[in-house]
Design a protein around this nucleic acid. Structure first.
Lengths: 140, 140
DNA sequence: TCTTGATGTAATCATAATAGTTATAAGCAG
DNA sequence: CTGCTTATAACTATTATGATTACATCAAGA
């Protein structure tokens, strides 16, 4: 069924490519590596820019990373591109308030699911863009 | 942006209600507590049935739980209703194979994201339907 | 200053998942 | 047989996503 969007993988790709590349990273160049079109790349770069992760030279063009890549975690990127209202990963139905189960399932279950979400986020926090770059550099 | 579907919360609701209720749990009765219609309930019960968590008396009606509720974890329910092909939580774009980053980002990043997903699943495994039932019973 | 090439962003569009709903065939108890 | 229920298909509306086009804006260099 439905998974989370590929914005996270695209955003990590953008950051990795920008970190590794010596050439001027225009949206056109990045799009050719990501296999999509420049407008989509610019949209995602917009999210990264709002999060303070990158800066873009308007006019001339070119994306540059604004932090040490060992300090940009996957959670930073995830939060930049995958934000949900209330930060909740799971959706809830609205139970019937007249029924004890319906009235309370959200708070009880919600606390449990929040823990699961936090566990995932903590794991994302342990991995940085530098880890990804190193992983690719290690390849033959 | 997008969260995961509310099928998990509805499924947990169904199981909790069935576990706590002494009356015959027809899809009609459950739907009134969940605040939706019987057909949707039957659809989700279908997933739970396929996973061996419940049995349904066709004809007469009524859902019954097939395992001890202390042995049904949220992960069991999650897997029953939220299955994705390949079990991946995150989607990936398809990078350009001509580019070193594009060719390898999926395997490198995929391994990292798999860990995050596993951490979430491990947390879901720690919570059972009994915990939810107990939580609701504890309320005034 | 003007040209060139890039960004920022809005506007469409097609596709897919979700959830709501209706309808109907089939099952079982009394 | 009757009445109630489940199982399932079909259809609809809504929404997120991703692809794409278009255009105004911006900055550097000739």
């Amino acid at each position: 069924m439905k998974k989370l969007s590929s914005r996270l993988s695209i955003a990590v790709h953008i950051l990795t490519l920008t970190a590794m590349s010596s050439k001027n990273c225009t949206s056109e160049f990045i799009a050719s590596s990501v296999n999509t079109n420049p407008a989509l790349i610019r949209r995602i770069i917009g999210y990264l820019k709002n999060a303070g992760l990158v800066a873009v030279q308007a006019g001339t063009g070119g994306t540059s990373i604004q932090k040490d890549i060992s300090e940009i975690t996957l959670l930073d990127v995830y939060n930049a591109v995958e934000v949900t209202e209330g930060n909740g990963l799971f959706n809830f139905h609205k139970g019937n308030r007249q029924c004890k189960v319906g009235a309370n399932i959200e708070s009880i279950l919600g606390a449990a699911l929040k823990k699961a979400q936090t566990a995932m986020e903590n794991e994302l926090r342990r991995i940085t863009i530098k880890d990804i770059v190193d992983g690719i550099n290690k390849l033959p």
